[in-house]
């Protein structure tokens, strides 16, 4: 029942070259997963004329200007900035609120503790989209529509249940002796939390942070409703706008789309271990 995010012993069995079937299968699965992405990236180096004449071919000749045009657009960079601001805000909010709640739920004994935990897990039982209309009305009445906070705060709220479910068993697994030792050294419970538990929890905190960041970076429905003002649009909204406004410019859409997915791909390849670890933690509850 405990979730740990330590790297698992992957070297349990010695490496082998496997059999040819394993490789053929692995290659086929990887190709199906990745070929469309390659198509999008390469398509950005072709002209719309090339794509129309020969839909599935390599760039000939390679055209760099489409990518260059996207990179020169200030709109693109504004959207990168908006996405980053919202994702960082969401991540900070989730981690701070989540770890505080998980700390109490794991290391304090009090009446109603399990009820409080169950209360948070209700959030896992229904889809976030269900509440989106009344949520929008609420944000509008609170004057949070068309603001970064109007996206950040609800995203923090949606992400709290899974964060607490991942963090609680992790924090609970530290032995009581650790707390007693800190207490003997004069630290009260908050001191123990701040000086000992937090630094030791880094792997779990990174996991929930990465999950929150990626969820925010990709989120579409909430920003679509809340951010009416185009100057506040995030990348997913920008990709959709661009494809709607330039529907004849296939090469341009492909270039814009591949640049928009670069940060997520880059971020993911750096943090893959944490994301997979976090998902494992999530399923193991």
């Amino acid at each position: 029942m405990v979730t740990t995010t330590m790297p698992q012993p992957s070297q349990r069995r010695p490496f082998s070259w496997g059999n040819p079937l394993t490789y053929a299968l692995a290659l086929a699965v990887a190709a199906i997963s990745f070929a469309p992405v390659i198509y999008v990236i390469l398509g950005g180096f072709r002209t719309t004329g090339q794509i129309a004449a020969e839909p599935a071919a390599l760039p000939d000749p390679w055209v760099w200007s489409t990518y260059a045009n996207v990179i020169r657009q200030s709109k693109f960079w504004a959207e990168v900035l908006n996405s980053t601001l919202i994702a960082v805000g969401t991540t900070l909010g989730v981690v701070v609120l989540g770890v505080c709640a998980a700390f109490v739920l794991s290391r304090y004994k009090f009446r109603g503790r399990e009820a409080l935990y169950t209360y948070f897990t209700i959030g896992l039982l229904f889809p976030a989209a269900a509440g989106i209309l009344p949520l929008y009305l609420l944000l509008r009445d609170l004057d949070l529509a068309n603001s970064y906070l109007g996206v950040i705060i609800p995203q923090v709220a949606f992400q709290l249940p899974i964060t607490i479910v991942i963090l609680r068993p992790f924090l609970a697994a530290f032995p009581a002796e650790l707390e007693d030792a800190a207490s003997i050294d004069g630290a009260d419970r908050l001191g123990f939390f701040w000086r000992i538990l937090l630094p030791l929890s880094r792997p779990a905190l990174v996991t929930v942070a990465v999950l929150a960041f990626v969820a925010s970076w990709n989120s579409f429905l909430l920003p679509l409703l809340v951010l009416q003002n185009e100057s506040m649009h995030t990348l997913p909204l920008g990709v959709q706008n661009f494809s709607a406004e330039h529907s004849q410019d296939t090469a341009g859409i492909l270039a814009f789309t591949s640049l928009a997915m670069m940060p997520a791909l880059l971020f993911f390849s750096l943090a893959e271990r944490q994301i997979v670890g976090g998902l494992q933690g999530a399923v193991k509850g």
């Binding site: 699965v29 990887a30 997963s33 990745f34 469309p36 992405v37 198509y39 999008v40 990626v214 970076w217 990709n218 579409f220 990348l235 997913p236 909204l237 990709v239 959709q240 494809s243 859409i253 789309t257 928009a260 997915m261 997520a264 791909l265 993911f268 390849s269 893959e272 994301i275 997979v276």
Partner: peptide, 17 residues
């Protein structure tokens, strides 16, 4: 890493692609 790529891409990217 490769098989996980579709999951990490945003739904919007996937839809337009």
């Amino acid at each position: 890493l490769l098989v996980f790529v579709p999951y990490v891409l945003s739904e919007v990217t996937v839809g337009i692609m």
